[in-house]
């Protein structure tokens, strides 16, 4: 493999991964056994938790998420419980 191929193969690796990531965002209804929670939900929850933990110590259940549907509109409801502040 030439040194230029390093870049090329990285680019290629990206395209299937990008396809999957983009699909996970658009394929946001219908999930077996999980009501109508979008496919990306668990991952988003973990990511939010990770960001939060950079700043505060929180438990696994600190991030609560819900999707509300009103007609064509989807609202993501996010509840983050912070630990009681230590004075």
């Amino acid at each position: 493999m030439g040194w230029l191929d390093v870049f090329r193969s990285n680019e290629k690796k990206g395209s299937a991964r990008m396809a999957k990531e983009r699909l996970q965002v658009v394929v946001a209804h219908r999930r077996t056994g999980r009501g109508d929670q979008p496919a990306y939900f668990p991952q988003l929850q973990q990511d939010l938790l990770a960001v939060l933990r950079k700043y505060v110590e929180v438990g696994e259940d600190a991030v609560q998420m819900e999707i509300e549907r009103e007609g064509d509109l989807e609202v993501l409801e996010l509840n983050i419980t912070l630990p009681e502040a230590k004075h």
């Binding site: 193969s9 290629k12 690796k13 990206g14 395209s15 299937a16 991964r17 396809a19 999957k20 699909l23 996970q24 394929v27 999930r31 077996t32 496919a39």
Partner: peptide, 19 residues
């Protein structure tokens, strides 16, 4: 093409469609 990362794999499709 799947091996080269250019095409969605069976696992990718399975993850998304979940059937």
């Amino acid at each position: 093409r799947v091996g080269k990362g250019e095409m969605l794999s069976l696992d990718d499709i399975g993850d998304i469609l979940a059937i």
